[in-house]
Design a protein around this nucleic acid. Structure first.
Lengths: 188, 188
DNA sequence: CCGATTTGCCTAAAAGCTTTAGGCAACTGC
DNA sequence: GCAGTTGCCTAAAGCTTTTAGGCAAATCGG
């Protein structure tokens, strides 16, 4: 009786495990336990612990990009902005472990093979609804990335303690603010 | 001959170590090696590995708050905004390990004892230069936190690959953008 | 100044994670 | 059904964390 391990199934199971116990706690040993298999067996499918984590990160980035593409379809302007923003926030809430994985610093090789490019393309797609030309568009792409990532990770980390006003309200107002800023991007 | 360990010296040494090898690699064992002392000895000063990391985080938050307070003294408006923003960015560049430590999710007890409150007070101080009243001021505090944290961590993580235009330019334009937005904060 | 107490670092040991090497059995294809 | 490949196994070394208990060095009281 073989367990039927593959790198993909390991990454998938690792992603689920990450959501349950946190990305930090995802370990080759724990994964072996889940598959009821000896630890050494995993090393035929995965180079090492870091390789496993990288695969989980790539999977998460891919899923996020898929969600983003769906959300953006048929939307433009502020509608698109909010849709993309919510993709990141909702994904982080539904899949905290995967979201943490997506934050993993990838080595250049992995980064090139990742969905990273799709993510910046999505941000650019949103910006088509605003009147920015290069290089301002690039600056704006980076701003969107910063706000989305920064807000989501602070909110998830409890950075905005449960004080009033609630974070739902803040999120809405920040999106209003970003929209206003993009419509009125200051010249250099 | 005693080594003269204390929780404070361990946190300090841990912070330096974090800057050299990365916060993730800061380990009780490695620290023991640095002090040329047996591992078990550290456990008289520090409850466990997580306690050590928490102490490093608190130290980093404290240092950051000190720098922020200096930077803000005598400044207002966009000047203050840029000064505070640069405190975070510069600190992250000079002390990447400490900055990573400052991102550690603190348990409520540690969070309450941390310099977290000073940080939001600094953001509020910056916002005094703009015309925002509650609850918009809180929303804006959170926006500043998001952008500063998000930008710095993406830049450090290589998220803005070394593509043109350079990140220095983007940073300047984002601060221009934030300033413009705060001066023209949209109503609800 | 010296004995008593506290404190600090030690040895010892258990338990868990990572990674490599080499082997045997179970699938796969001919 | 046999040969070959692949997959999971045993074994083992090295690292980290954490606890328990001991001896010696610093510190304090007389």
């Amino acid at each position: 009786m073989r367990a039927g391990l593959t790198a993909e199934r390991l990454a998938q199971a690792g992603a689920e495990l990450a959501d349950e116990v946190g990305f930090e706690q995802v370990t080759v040993s724990e994964l072996a336990r889940q598959f009821d298999v000896k630890v050494a067996s995993l090393y035929s499918h995965v180079r090492n612990s870091h390789d496993l984590k990288t695969r989980i990160a790539l999977l998460a980035l891919e899923e996020l990009a898929d969600r983003g593409a769906s959300a953006l379809a048929g939307r433009a302007g502020k509608d698109a902005l909010a849709a993309l923003a919510n993709v990141y926030r909702d994904y982080a809430r539904e899949h905290p472990g995967r979201y943490a994985a997506a934050q993993l610093r990838l080595d250049p090789a992995a980064a090139a093979a990742s969905a990273g490019g799709r993510h910046s393309q999505m941000a650019r797609a949103v910006l088509r609804g605003y009147d920015l030309t290069e290089p301002d568009q690039t600056h704006a792409v980076r701003l969107l990335g910063s706000v989305f990532h920064g807000y989501v990770s602070l909110e998830m980390g409890g950075g905005f303690s449960h004080s009033a006003p609630d974070t739902e309200e803040t999120w809405a107002r920040i999106l209003d603010g970003l929209d206003a800023l993009l419509r009125n991007w200051p010249e250099a």
